[in-house]
Deep mutational scan, measured.
Amino acid sequence: NITNLCPFDEVFNATRFASVYAWNRKRISNCVADYSVLYNLAPFFTFKCYGVSPTKLNDLCFTNVYADSFVIRGDEVRQIAPGQTGNIADYNYKLPDDFTGCVIAWNSNKLDSKVSGNYNYLYRLFRKSNLKPFERDISTEIYQAGNKPCNGVAGFNCYFPLRSYSFRPTYGVGHQPYRVVVLSFELLHAPATVCGPKKST
């Protein structure tokens, strides 16, 4: 009989979030998941669920729940959905087409922007091929755009693959930082360890 609440607040209220290319994953298990708490945590810009209804979450049980978190800019949030393409979905964080879970995003301009520009958040701009779903690539190998090998040196047709967002508070919403948490629900042929409040007794 599990009584402890799932530590969603640790994920959502973390002081620092990860850069999207090096997104963070927390496995959540053996706890009571009260998803209604999430609705009250922040004024969400996005709370979209796929393959599951957000209002039914509190009635369900899962084997595992994974919470992935990272920062992107406002106009990239739409890429965090099944079947999307674009720089983020292709080279940084890719959801599977049959994704079961929820994408939660909110504006973090007050936390993640600086007047002089916050350069701490990076994204991958160049990659030889698209990522597979939930693949994480943290390599910093020089990207070869031409025929000549780069031998690890940046220059003509040889690019450092990561680029930094420079978040400034005066930017338009599309270029402001957004914190994203992706909850993916895993149903294996194994005992369910993460249940809503109704199912945990």
Rank of each mutant, 00 (worst) to 15 (best):
P149H: 11
F167D: 00
R124I: 00
N64Q: 13
V37A: 14
T140W: 08
R27L: 11
K48W: 06
Y159R: 02
P96A: 08
G74F: 03
F156T: 06
A22H: 10
K110Q: 10
C158Y: 01
T100F: 15
A145K: 05
F99N: 01
S129Q: 14
L183T: 02
A190F: 10
T193E: 13
F12W: 07
F160S: 11
K148V: 14
P191G: 13
S166F: 04
L38C: 06
N24Y: 09
A18D: 08
T63P: 09
I2S: 13
F134W: 13
T170R: 05
R78H: 10
F12S: 05
I142K: 03
A145Y: 02
C31W: 06
L162P: 00
L125N: 04
D98A: 10
A105P: 01
S113E: 00
N64C: 12
P197N: 15
S184I: 09
Q144W: 04
K56F: 08
F134P: 02
A81V: 06
N109Y: 04
I138A: 11
P177K: 01
K148E: 14
C195I: 08
D98G: 09
V52I: 14
N30E: 08
V182Q: 01
R168E: 00
C158R: 03
R179N: 00
R127T: 02
S139T: 14
S166H: 08
P161G: 04
N4I: 09
P161K: 04
N58E: 14
Y165D: 00
R163N: 15
R78N: 10
S29W: 09
W23M: 02
L183W: 05
F12D: 04
F160P: 10
K128F: 08
W106R: 06
F45R: 15
R27I: 14
L41V: 13
T63I: 09
P133K: 05
A105V: 08
E141L: 08
F134E: 07
T15N: 11
V71P: 00
P7Y: 08
L183G: 01
K26Q: 12
N40K: 14
T46E: 12
H189W: 09
A145V: 07
C31Y: 06
Y35P: 10
N87K: 15
W106T: 05
N118D: 06
G155M: 06
